[in-house]
Amino acid sequence: MLRSSMAIAPSATGTTAHTEALPPAIQQAYDAHAPSLFRVLRRLGVPDAQVEDAVQDTFVVACRRHAAFEARSSYKTWLYGIARRVARDYRRQRARRYSEDPEIEGLSGGTNPETQTDAARAARLLDAGLGRLSEPLREVFVLAEIEQLTAPEIAEVVQVPLNTVYSRLRVARERLGAYLTEQRATGGSV
């Protein structure tokens, strides 16, 4: 896991906690972006059981690099960029695919139970499809489709040219579309 140079003390549960308050801008960023970061980290392949740690690590890194933020990008895309690297670290540590862990407890769906069931089913299906994509394709697809970022924003987060974002997005959609077709043909629920 990533560890900050700031004062961090182990908590009673074995995880870590900050002993100092975060800068106000980071606190504000937490209120504004933490739900999205939960979502993006999860979709980028961080197992559900580790998402909270990953969100924490993202903010720890943000805190550490806060002074280096030069406002060349928006704060949101900057945070997403950190989250992307954190997710990569988690995936590599875990060394197994996210799609093998279908557990999605602890995630609240809509208020309507019927919708929640559909949403959970859709999430599982999407996980399985995303698990078939390579890391670069998956990142671009998640940022575009789940987080609704624009292509220039994705280019900032992923640090690739705009053309590359578009071509990765196209390939990712084609592959996921083919996967859905395959699922339908084999009787899987879509």
Partner: peptide
């Protein structure tokens, strides 16, 4: 398949909101 994919991601987005 694009609309179908978008519907799927829309549903998954709802499931991903943290408690």
């Amino acid at each position: 398949q694009l609309p179908e994919l978008q519907r799927l991601t829309e549903l998954a987005r709802q499931a991903d909101l943290p408690s």
